[in-house]
Computed example of a mutant assay.
Amino acid sequence: MNTVIHSDTQIGLVRLRVHNLTRSIEFYQSVIGLNVLKREEKTAYLSANGQSVLVEIEEHVDAVRVQPRTTTGLYHFALLVPTRKDLGVVLQHMLEQKMDIGQSDHYVSEALYLSDPDGNGIEIYADRPRSTWKRDASNHYVMGSEPIMWRELLDEAKDEQWNGLPQETIIGHIHLHASDLELAKEFYVEKLGFEVVGDYKAMRALFIAAGGYHHHIGLNVWAGIGAPSPPKGAIGLVYYTIILPDSTARNDVIKRLDKNGIDVKTNEDFYVFTDPFGIEIRLACK
Protein backbone atom coordinates (compact mmCIF):
# COMPACT_ATOMS: atom_id res chain seq x y z
CA MET A 1 0.00 0.00 0.00
CA ASN A 2 1.39 3.40 -1.01
CA THR A 3 1.74 6.05 1.69
CA VAL A 4 1.55 9.03 -0.68
CA ILE A 5 -1.51 9.87 -2.75
CA HIS A 6 -1.17 9.33 -6.50
CA SER A 7 0.67 12.10 -8.34
CA ASP A 8 -2.21 12.53 -10.82
CA THR A 9 -4.73 13.33 -8.09
CA GLN A 10 -6.87 16.42 -8.70
CA ILE A 11 -9.66 18.34 -7.04
CA GLY A 12 -13.01 17.68 -8.68
CA LEU A 13 -16.40 19.33 -8.45
CA VAL A 14 -17.62 21.32 -5.48
CA ARG A 15 -21.22 21.45 -4.29
CA LEU A 16 -22.54 24.62 -2.67
CA ARG A 17 -25.66 25.46 -0.68
CA VAL A 18 -27.33 28.75 -1.72
CA HIS A 19 -30.49 30.68 -0.86
CA ASN A 20 -31.85 31.39 -4.32
CA LEU A 21 -31.12 29.07 -7.24
CA THR A 22 -32.23 31.43 -9.99
CA ARG A 23 -30.10 34.27 -8.62
CA SER A 24 -27.08 32.00 -8.32
CA ILE A 25 -27.46 30.60 -11.84
CA GLU A 26 -27.56 34.14 -13.22
CA PHE A 27 -24.38 35.02 -11.33
CA TYR A 28 -22.44 31.90 -12.31
CA GLN A 29 -23.44 32.33 -15.95
CA SER A 30 -23.15 36.08 -16.52
CA VAL A 31 -20.31 36.90 -14.12
CA ILE A 32 -18.24 33.73 -13.75
CA GLY A 33 -18.89 32.28 -17.19
CA LEU A 34 -20.09 28.76 -16.43
CA ASN A 35 -23.03 27.16 -18.24
CA VAL A 36 -25.95 25.14 -16.93
CA LEU A 37 -25.40 21.54 -17.96
CA LYS A 38 -28.52 20.33 -16.17
CA ARG A 39 -31.16 21.90 -13.92
CA GLU A 40 -33.52 20.23 -11.48
CA GLU A 41 -36.13 21.87 -9.25
CA LYS A 42 -33.66 22.79 -6.49
CA THR A 43 -30.27 22.01 -8.02
CA ALA A 44 -28.18 23.19 -10.97
CA TYR A 45 -25.07 21.56 -12.44
CA LEU A 46 -22.57 24.00 -13.95
CA SER A 47 -19.90 23.29 -16.54
CA ALA A 48 -17.24 25.05 -18.59
CA ASN A 49 -17.06 22.50 -21.41
CA GLY A 50 -20.66 21.29 -21.60
CA GLN A 51 -19.66 17.80 -20.47
CA SER A 52 -18.12 17.69 -16.98
CA VAL A 53 -19.58 19.39 -13.91
CA LEU A 54 -17.37 21.81 -12.00
CA VAL A 55 -19.88 23.33 -9.58
CA GLU A 56 -23.19 22.08 -8.23
CA ILE A 57 -25.52 24.52 -6.47
CA GLU A 58 -28.47 23.47 -4.37
CA GLU A 59 -31.18 25.82 -3.11
CA HIS A 60 -32.16 26.02 0.57
CA VAL A 61 -34.25 29.13 1.09
CA ASP A 62 -34.23 28.83 4.89
CA ALA A 63 -30.55 27.96 5.30
CA VAL A 64 -28.53 29.95 7.85
CA ARG A 65 -25.79 32.22 6.53
CA VAL A 66 -22.83 32.32 8.88
CA GLN A 67 -20.58 35.35 9.26
CA PRO A 68 -17.31 35.13 7.28
CA ARG A 69 -14.31 33.64 9.12
CA THR A 70 -16.32 32.36 12.07
CA THR A 71 -16.49 28.62 11.29
CA THR A 72 -14.61 25.90 9.49
CA GLY A 73 -15.52 25.22 5.87
CA LEU A 74 -14.99 26.96 2.56
CA TYR A 75 -12.63 29.89 2.20
CA HIS A 76 -12.74 29.65 -1.58
CA PHE A 77 -12.75 27.20 -4.45
CA ALA A 78 -10.44 28.03 -7.34
CA LEU A 79 -11.14 27.87 -11.06
CA LEU A 80 -7.91 27.41 -13.03
CA VAL A 81 -7.92 28.88 -16.54
CA PRO A 82 -5.39 27.62 -19.10
CA THR A 83 -3.42 30.78 -19.90
CA ARG A 84 -2.51 34.25 -18.68
CA LYS A 85 -4.41 35.67 -21.65
CA ASP A 86 -7.53 33.86 -20.42
CA LEU A 87 -7.09 35.48 -17.02
CA GLY A 88 -6.74 38.85 -18.72
CA VAL A 89 -10.05 38.29 -20.50
CA VAL A 90 -11.63 37.39 -17.15
CA LEU A 91 -10.26 40.56 -15.57
CA GLN A 92 -11.53 42.67 -18.46
CA HIS A 93 -14.96 41.09 -18.11
CA MET A 94 -15.05 41.61 -14.33
CA LEU A 95 -14.22 45.29 -14.74
CA GLU A 96 -16.96 45.66 -17.35
CA GLN A 97 -19.37 44.01 -14.89
CA LYS A 98 -18.21 46.48 -12.20
CA MET A 99 -17.50 43.60 -9.85
CA ASP A 100 -15.77 44.11 -6.51
CA ILE A 101 -12.73 41.87 -6.95
CA GLY A 102 -9.58 41.12 -5.03
CA GLN A 103 -6.32 40.20 -6.67
CA SER A 104 -2.91 38.78 -5.87
CA ASP A 105 0.33 37.73 -7.51
CA HIS A 106 1.37 34.56 -5.67
CA TYR A 107 4.59 34.13 -7.74
CA VAL A 108 3.48 30.64 -8.81
CA SER A 109 0.19 32.05 -10.10
CA GLU A 110 -1.87 35.19 -10.59
CA ALA A 111 -5.33 35.28 -9.08
CA LEU A 112 -8.60 37.21 -8.96
CA TYR A 113 -10.99 36.86 -6.02
CA LEU A 114 -14.69 37.47 -5.57
CA SER A 115 -17.73 36.00 -3.83
CA ASP A 116 -21.04 34.71 -5.13
CA PRO A 117 -24.33 36.28 -3.95
CA ASP A 118 -24.31 34.04 -0.85
CA GLY A 119 -20.73 34.84 0.14
CA ASN A 120 -19.13 31.66 -1.19
CA GLY A 121 -15.52 32.54 -2.02
CA ILE A 122 -14.26 32.07 -5.58
CA GLU A 123 -10.77 32.39 -7.02
CA ILE A 124 -10.08 32.50 -10.75
CA TYR A 125 -6.41 32.09 -11.54
CA ALA A 126 -3.73 31.19 -14.06
CA ASP A 127 -0.52 29.36 -13.21
CA ARG A 128 2.88 30.62 -14.16
CA PRO A 129 5.08 28.01 -15.89
CA ARG A 130 6.10 25.33 -13.40
CA SER A 131 9.73 25.86 -14.36
CA THR A 132 9.58 29.29 -12.68
CA TRP A 133 8.26 28.06 -9.34
CA LYS A 134 10.88 28.35 -6.62
CA ARG A 135 11.34 26.36 -3.41
CA ASP A 136 12.92 27.47 -0.15
CA ALA A 137 15.43 25.67 2.08
CA SER A 138 12.60 23.51 3.46
CA ASN A 139 11.63 22.49 -0.09
CA HIS A 140 8.39 24.44 0.18
CA TYR A 141 7.16 26.67 -2.62
CA VAL A 142 8.00 30.33 -2.30
CA MET A 143 4.66 32.11 -2.47
CA GLY A 144 3.63 35.65 -1.73
CA SER A 145 0.78 38.09 -2.07
CA GLU A 146 1.84 41.00 -4.26
CA PRO A 147 -0.31 43.23 -6.48
CA ILE A 148 -0.94 41.84 -9.92
CA MET A 149 0.17 43.76 -13.00
CA TRP A 150 -3.29 44.98 -14.01
CA ARG A 151 -2.27 46.70 -17.22
CA GLU A 152 -0.18 43.74 -18.38
CA LEU A 153 -3.10 41.38 -17.85
CA LEU A 154 -5.51 43.65 -19.68
CA ASP A 155 -3.01 43.98 -22.52
CA GLU A 156 -2.95 40.18 -22.70
CA ALA A 157 -6.70 40.25 -23.31
CA LYS A 158 -6.34 42.64 -26.26
CA ASP A 159 -10.08 43.31 -26.33
CA GLU A 160 -10.87 39.62 -26.80
CA GLN A 161 -14.60 38.90 -26.80
CA TRP A 162 -15.89 37.41 -23.54
CA ASN A 163 -17.41 33.99 -24.22
CA GLY A 164 -17.43 32.58 -20.72
CA LEU A 165 -14.68 30.52 -19.16
CA PRO A 166 -12.49 28.46 -21.50
CA GLN A 167 -13.58 24.87 -22.01
CA GLU A 168 -10.31 23.65 -20.45
CA THR A 169 -11.08 25.36 -17.12
CA ILE A 170 -10.87 23.03 -14.10
CA ILE A 171 -11.09 23.24 -10.34
CA GLY A 172 -7.42 23.85 -9.61
CA HIS A 173 -7.59 23.80 -5.83
CA ILE A 174 -9.77 24.40 -2.81
CA HIS A 175 -8.94 26.49 0.25
CA LEU A 176 -10.53 25.63 3.58
CA HIS A 177 -10.93 27.11 7.03
CA ALA A 178 -9.71 24.59 9.61
CA SER A 179 -9.59 24.84 13.39
CA ASP A 180 -6.12 23.36 13.96
CA LEU A 181 -3.26 23.09 11.47
CA GLU A 182 -1.50 20.23 13.25
CA LEU A 183 -4.73 18.25 13.17
CA ALA A 184 -5.14 19.21 9.52
CA LYS A 185 -1.63 18.00 8.72
CA GLU A 186 -2.17 14.73 10.58
CA PHE A 187 -5.35 14.04 8.62
CA TYR A 188 -4.57 15.31 5.13
CA VAL A 189 -0.90 14.32 5.01
CA GLU A 190 -0.39 11.35 7.31
CA LYS A 191 -3.77 9.70 6.70
CA LEU A 192 -4.98 10.90 3.30
CA GLY A 193 -1.53 11.00 1.70
CA PHE A 194 -1.04 14.52 0.36
CA GLU A 195 2.41 16.10 0.60
CA VAL A 196 3.24 19.38 2.30
CA VAL A 197 4.33 21.97 -0.26
CA GLY A 198 4.01 25.03 1.95
CA ASP A 199 4.05 25.25 5.75
CA TYR A 200 3.53 28.97 6.16
CA LYS A 201 3.45 29.41 9.92
CA ALA A 202 3.63 33.21 9.73
CA MET A 203 0.48 33.17 7.60
CA ARG A 204 -1.13 30.46 9.77
CA ALA A 205 -1.66 28.37 6.64
CA LEU A 206 -0.70 24.94 5.32
CA PHE A 207 -0.63 24.06 1.63
CA ILE A 208 -0.67 20.44 0.46
CA ALA A 209 -0.64 18.82 -2.95
CA ALA A 210 -0.13 15.76 -5.11
CA GLY A 211 2.49 15.41 -7.82
CA GLY A 212 4.46 18.53 -6.93
CA TYR A 213 1.67 21.03 -7.64
CA HIS A 214 1.85 24.32 -5.71
CA HIS A 215 -1.29 23.29 -3.82
CA HIS A 216 -4.44 21.28 -4.33
CA ILE A 217 -5.72 22.05 -0.83
CA GLY A 218 -5.04 25.12 1.26
CA LEU A 219 -5.83 25.07 4.97
CA ASN A 220 -5.82 28.04 7.32
CA VAL A 221 -6.91 28.98 10.85
CA TRP A 222 -8.05 32.48 9.95
CA ALA A 223 -11.46 31.74 11.50
CA GLY A 224 -9.63 31.14 14.76
CA ILE A 225 -7.96 28.16 16.39
CA GLY A 226 -10.75 25.92 17.65
CA ALA A 227 -13.31 27.45 15.27
CA PRO A 228 -16.58 25.46 15.27
CA SER A 229 -18.13 23.70 12.31
CA PRO A 230 -20.98 25.63 10.67
CA PRO A 231 -24.54 24.78 11.67
CA LYS A 232 -25.95 21.79 9.83
CA GLY A 233 -27.47 22.86 6.53
CA ALA A 234 -25.85 26.31 6.55
CA ILE A 235 -25.09 28.25 3.39
CA GLY A 236 -21.69 27.25 2.04
CA LEU A 237 -19.79 24.13 1.06
CA VAL A 238 -21.77 20.89 1.01
CA TYR A 239 -18.81 18.78 -0.13
CA TYR A 240 -15.84 18.73 -2.45
CA THR A 241 -14.44 15.89 -4.53
CA ILE A 242 -10.97 14.41 -4.82
CA ILE A 243 -10.42 12.73 -8.19
CA LEU A 244 -8.04 9.77 -8.41
CA PRO A 245 -6.76 8.53 -11.79
CA ASP A 246 -8.08 4.98 -11.35
CA SER A 247 -9.65 2.55 -8.91
CA THR A 248 -6.27 1.23 -7.76
CA ALA A 249 -5.18 4.69 -6.63
CA ARG A 250 -8.56 5.24 -4.97
CA ASN A 251 -8.37 1.92 -3.16
CA ASP A 252 -4.94 2.87 -1.79
CA VAL A 253 -6.52 5.95 -0.22
CA ILE A 254 -9.43 3.97 1.17
CA LYS A 255 -7.06 1.41 2.71
CA ARG A 256 -5.06 4.18 4.39
CA LEU A 257 -8.19 5.79 5.76
CA ASP A 258 -9.51 2.46 6.99
CA LYS A 259 -6.16 1.68 8.66
CA ASN A 260 -6.38 5.02 10.47
CA GLY A 261 -9.92 4.45 11.68
CA ILE A 262 -11.63 6.88 9.30
CA ASP A 263 -15.23 5.90 8.57
CA VAL A 264 -15.66 5.70 4.78
CA LYS A 265 -19.14 5.14 3.38
CA THR A 266 -19.71 3.77 -0.11
CA ASN A 267 -21.99 4.74 -2.98
CA GLU A 268 -22.26 3.44 -6.53
CA ASP A 269 -20.02 6.19 -7.90
CA PHE A 270 -17.97 7.47 -4.98
CA TYR A 271 -16.73 6.98 -1.44
CA VAL A 272 -17.51 9.61 1.18
CA PHE A 273 -15.94 10.59 4.51
CA THR A 274 -15.55 13.67 6.70
CA ASP A 275 -12.40 15.52 7.74
CA PRO A 276 -11.81 16.53 11.40
CA PHE A 277 -13.49 19.88 10.77
CA GLY A 278 -16.83 18.54 9.57
CA ILE A 279 -16.06 18.99 5.88
CA GLU A 280 -17.45 16.26 3.62
CA ILE A 281 -15.09 14.82 1.01
CA ARG A 282 -15.94 12.44 -1.81
CA LEU A 283 -13.48 10.19 -3.63
CA ALA A 284 -14.11 9.47 -7.28
CA CYS A 285 -12.16 8.22 -10.32
CA LYS A 286 -11.58 9.91 -13.66
Rank of each mutant, 00 (worst) to 15 (best):
G233L: 07
Y239A: 03
L244P: 01
N260V: 04
D263H: 10
W222R: 06
I254A: 09
N220P: 02
G236L: 02
H216K: 07
I235S: 05
Y240D: 05
G218K: 12
V264C: 11
V238K: 15
V253G: 07
T266F: 05
S247R: 15
D258M: 02
R250A: 14
D246G: 08
R250L: 15
G236S: 03
D263A: 09
V264F: 00
S229K: 14
N267W: 08
I235C: 10
A234Y: 09
D263K: 14
G224H: 11
N251I: 03
T248L: 09
A234D: 04
D263R: 10
A227S: 15
Y239T: 01
Y239D: 13
A227D: 13
T266D: 14
G226E: 15
D252N: 15
V253I: 12
D246R: 08
V264M: 00
N267V: 00
G236Y: 00
P245A: 12
L244N: 09
K265Y: 00
G224W: 11
A227N: 14
P230N: 09
K255R: 11
T241Y: 09
V238F: 00
G236I: 00
N260S: 01
K265T: 12
P245W: 06
N260I: 01
A234Q: 07
R256Y: 01
Y240A: 06
N220Q: 08
N251D: 13
R256Q: 04
T241F: 05
